[in-house]
Design a protein around this nucleic acid. Structure first.
Lengths: 354, 354
DNA sequence: TTGAAAGCGATACCAT
DNA sequence: ATGGTATCGCTTTCAA
């Protein structure tokens, strides 16, 4: 029952031309007479012919597909990032082969698989690649760019938010607002994002004389934030301000404080998040947070990638983009500050078409 | 500077065996002596050889990649679904080539591209495929299964939530709770999901004597829900119950009612959503909603797909899975009902490993 | 412009 | 078990 696939040879026969001519007809810049082209096109549609991209890839030595490895697609703004990557890639005629890394699994063996599929380039988002693997990619000429993660010492392209600086921003804001007992609800200890945010926050706090800052948490989820807040707020010396290393955790912390403990925000407690997901702007939360420059990050990543696709010899770059403090109503203000009412950039409809 | 790709021939030469033997070494069930295998493996690692999946695909006549076309990756539970698809696929040794359809764009031309890449099978999630294209796929033996969408009359595999029945469920619940002025905040008129939910709701309402039900909205987003609620509640005869065709819209509606209009939920207004996204269970909302059986849908989709990958002749199936009404605190209860406290299924960590 | 033929990097059948 | 070779479907010289 399975009809045999129709190939360019079939079309050639049917159109009374050579197979080469058929190939040329489907190659944008090639030289084919109008007459021949017409015959081929007709024969093709009669037979229901579609060029075989796999065969073409083998012959042309490139696939036009870029691999995307993403740790947890469901994480805060990842779907948005992914969609944007895909759309932009499609716009320049490239396909995306998507891989998701099981949390805490070895990404290197996965990469080997990705490379087998001869991807022209690789985007690794929120997952880390070993320097060995990075070199392996470099060796066979596959450009790699890390998104939202970097690897120290390795010569790999990477674009990140400046998490350390953002952490310092939050520390300043909270101290300036007069808070005394600062706390942190942190993320996973093995992710550079969480570690850097914590570092910036703690460092700056210490510089300004706040030494004993308590931390809890361990995951960038709503639930983790909820539980951590409960524990933090149940202490003998509960904090009057909590910096949550992610918006999700911040929302959980707010709900825990309000609905479980009856604490008023920001009158009795300030909460600051990180990411600026859409829900942060909702009136139920109105969360003060750090806005991650997602759009610029995605664009920078794509630029880096596309550049190196054309000119593989370009040397690696490391882009560190600043986060922006968005003041809303979940944290006490320091002096006269404006409330920021701009919507989350994640709401911007992704552009389609050129 | 670009090192030439190393092929099985290079390895063969280096190991002093034939190219066939190299190939066999990398083919799971093939017969190679321990001695030969050892030599090959060593040579391969010395040279940094990786099998070329593209060449293999051409020769084996299948790619082990399945295409996934998804309309809006950022829609409510799509990231979760996508992640699950990817993981399960990876577990059975298949790769995913991902495409996102620009909203309201012609999906058929995109499909042509997908097919060019010789995908072994195709998942179309929340996007519609023309019967023509469905037939084209059938002709060249590419199994297709639609996720969360169906096409009437066409012989295509599909798995959906029973949106009509779910709509009726909501109608009953609201009427039973004694509501008089019912309203609907609907989704896009050209999506079967939105249309079916509306149909079930309206039909059942009418059957029970509620004829003039007002509808507003037009998109399954928070913002659309917010705006629609504002308009609905501003009428001379404002509704005392609103069914929102999606959770996102419901959250927007709740925020609009509470924070813009000062309306008490559920005392003065009942709100019911659809999807049961994680935020629906958060105490800030505690949204009564219809839980979409996502997990079973994903599993069913994969089952259908994998079955047909093995046995292409299997006839198409259409699975309609029931939604479940999850009672929380955003809607008045009909008589003595239990509040459902089970967490959103979307929180379940996706399984990795077999 | 067009056709013939040599790859591209594997798989698989056929002898040995 | 191993090697030789045709084959997968296309791109791309090279001549004509």
């Amino acid at each position: 029952m399975t009809t045999k696939r129709v190939t360019s040879i079939d079309v050639a026969r049917h159109a009374g031309v050579s197979q080469s001519t058929v190939s040329r007809t489907f190659t944008p810049g090639a030289g084919v007479s109008e007459a021949a082209r017409r015959k081929v096109v007709e024969a093709a549609s009669e037979l229901g012919y579609t060029p075989n991209a796999i065969a073409r890839s083998l012959s042309k030595q490139h696939t036009d597909i870029v691999g995307i490895v993403m740790g947890r697609i469901t994480s805060p703004f990842h779907p948005y990032v992914l969609e944007k990557f895909i759309n932009e890639l499609q716009n320049v005629g490239k396909q995306a082969l998507l891989f998701s890394t099981p949390p805490d699994s070895e990404i290197d063996e996965l990469l080997e698989l990705v490379l087998q599929y001869q991807v022209d380039a690789l985007i690794v988002a929120s997952a880390t690649i070993s320097s060995d693997m990075a070199e392996a990619c470099a060796r066979n000429g596959t450009p790699v760019v890390l998104f939202n993660r970097y690897v120290l010492g390795a010569n790999v392209n990477a674009v990140c938010t400046d998490n350390v600086e953002a952490g310092r921003l939050v520390a300043n804001e909270l101290i300036d607002a007069g808070h005394q007992k600062l706390a942190l609800i942190e993320g996973k200890a093995n992710t550079s994002t969480a570690v850097d945010r914590k570092k910036g926050y703690f460092d700056r706090l210490q510089e300004r004389g706040h030494v004993d800052v308590v931390a809890d948490g361990g995951d960038h989820t709503y639930e983790a934030g909820f539980e951590a807040a409960l524990r933090l707020l149940d202490r003998d010396d509960p904090p009057d301000a909590i910096f949550c290393s992610s918006d999700n955790a911040a929302l959980g912390a707010m709900d825990a404080a309000r609905y479980q403990l009856g604490i008023k925000i920001p009158a009795e407690l300030s909460v600051v998040g990180f990411d600026d997901i859409p829900a942060a702007a909702w009136p139920s939360y109105s969360l003060t947070t750090i806005r991650t420059p997602v759009n610029r990050m995605v664009e920078a990543t794509l630029d880096l990638l596309l550049d190196r696709l054309e000119k593989p010899s370009m040397s690696p770059e490391f882009l560190l983009l600043p986060g922006e403090l968005i003041r809303r109503h979940s944290a006490r203000l320091a002096g006269v500050q404006e409330i920021n009412t701009s919507p989350s950039p994640l709401l911007t409809k992704p552009q389609h078409g050129a």
